[in-house]
Amino acid sequence: MNNSEKGFIPVMLTPFNEDGAIDYNGLTQLVELYLSAGVSGLFANCLSSEMYELSEKERLELVKHVVKVVNGKVPVVATGSFGESIPQKAEFVNKIYDTGVQAVIAITGLLAKEEDSAQVFDQNVAQLLDLTGNVPLGFYECPVPYKRIISPEQLGRFVNTGRITYHKDTCLDIEQIRAKIAVTQGHNFGLYDAYMAHAVESLKAGSAGLSCIQGNFFPELVVWLCDNYNNDDEQVAKVQQFFIDHMDVMHAGYPVIAKYCLQQRGLPISMFTRTKTTTLTQEVKTKIDALINNYDVLKGELEIKFEVV
């Protein structure tokens, strides 16, 4: 996972049975869908996975299952920064790494309290690095429990340790993205942008790829953009505008609407979520159905052959 090739790293959903248990058969099919779409890696046990609603045992079993199904075809990363204290977080980081992932992701909002200074955050990161040996780590500026954005200067220092190989960025600021890329050049490191409104700009600026929730609706389209972003043509502009135009509908009631979309496209998974989200009303379903129809038109224009089933 570095800047040499552009790739899409999905923030994975977690399929559940209607009784709330993890649907491992559905998870297998979901992994296979991502792989068939051409993804460059997978991010398991993340916010889209409903990680805060999983037990410690479930988090480990889920990641082990993903790693097993992937079977080395692409790298897998997964969140591991759970626990009250930094030593407890380090202990779980080591457990997640033992599942076979390439890097363990730390949620920036779990490494310091919202009121803590950048200095406290830096000290906590240093302690986590000390307690996790040579485990490759990454950061995710997750919006829950709160969004802590890492500055370019901080990221540069962390990456210079040789331990930070991955960063999922949610700053929503293309100038910040450019600055972060500039200070991390020359390292075994990749920045993956979550914000699809400036996806093409980010890829052209040097990001390693994209890691966005929109890929849980149309993973093959995000892969297409990563493959074609450097073609200055109408198709690239149209795909970028498609994501901008449908930003709101793909965020409203997520992740249940993403599960509904994939279900409508042919993936046999339940819409059950443990996360308390907006009720999937008929109005919302109608909007997603229209979104799928709009995508089918675009898909035809781009001659994308991918099918969910």
Rank of each mutant, 00 (worst) to 15 (best):
K64P: 02
V67H: 09
K68S: 15
V69M: 02
V70N: 05
N71Q: 13
G72A: 10
P75W: 07
V77G: 01
G80M: 07
S81H: 05
F82H: 11
S85C: 07
I86P: 00
I86N: 06
Q88Y: 02
A90S: 14
A90T: 04
V93A: 00
I96Y: 06
Y97H: 13
T99L: 04
G100Y: 10
G100P: 11
G100W: 07
I105W: 02
T108M: 11
G109I: 13
L111S: 13
L111T: 12
K113N: 09
K113P: 00
S117I: 10
V120C: 00
V120Y: 01
D122M: 14
V125M: 03
V125I: 15
A126F: 11
Q127V: 13
L129W: 05
L129I: 15
T132H: 02
L137Q: 07
G138C: 08
E141W: 04
E141V: 05
P143F: 11
P143I: 13
V144I: 14
Y146Q: 08
Y146W: 15
Y146R: 08
I149R: 04
E153L: 06
E153G: 06
Q154C: 11
Q154A: 12
G156L: 09
V159G: 00
N160S: 14
N160A: 15
N160V: 02
T161V: 08
I164M: 02
Y166H: 12
D169S: 13
T170Q: 10
T170R: 06
C171S: 15
D173A: 06
I174D: 00
A179E: 14
I181D: 05
I181V: 15
A182C: 09
V183W: 01
V183T: 13
T184V: 09
T184N: 11
G186E: 04
G186A: 01
G186H: 04
H187S: 08
F189V: 09
F189L: 11
G190I: 09
Y192W: 11
Y192E: 12
D193R: 02
D193I: 07
A194G: 13
A194N: 09
A197V: 08
A197S: 14
H198Q: 12
H198C: 08
